[in-house]
């Protein structure tokens, strides 16, 4: 154990959403799930959940209709890439801004 005179400050923390700060602010594109194609949503069964498994920031819920915590989703797009049903689209965040062109 370190000598009590030494604080030994390191970057160590319990893993969880937000471990690297509010990473949602990094996002340029956000994942949008089409529930008509999403396997668990479509079958009503706990199947697939590949997006939950692959998300590097633990922000996808393991639910029948998976939810993405946009506070911390940094928009890496891994979920969209891995989804076997191509149910996830990466949509520019700017489209969701107030006053964004609806076209």
């Amino acid at each position: 154990m370190p000598d009590p005179r030494f604080k030994v400050l390191t970057s160590a923390s319990t893993s969880g959403p937000g471990d690297a700060g509010r990473t949602g602010s990094w996002r340029v594109e956000r994942p949008v799930i089409d529930m008509s194609r999403c396997i668990p949503a479509k079958t009503g069964k706990h199947a697939c959940h590949i997006c939950w498994l692959f998300c590097p920031d633990n922000v996808v819920s393991k639910e029948i209709e998976p939810a993405i915590d946009l506070e911390y989703c940094k928009g890496c797009g891994i979920c969209a890439q891995e989804c076997p049903a191509q149910a996830i689209a990466m949509v520019p965040d700017a489209d969701f801004l107030e006053g964004a062109d609806s076209e």
Partner: peptide
């Protein structure tokens, strides 16, 4: 399990348990 030396922001922050963690 702990996250060790992940991306550490310029400023100090509160971790998931609300404990203040030093910045880089």
């Amino acid at each position: 399990p702990e996250s060790l030396n992940t991306v550490t922001l310029p400023d100090a922050r509160l971790d998931v348990q609300g404990i203040k963690r030093g910045g880089y």
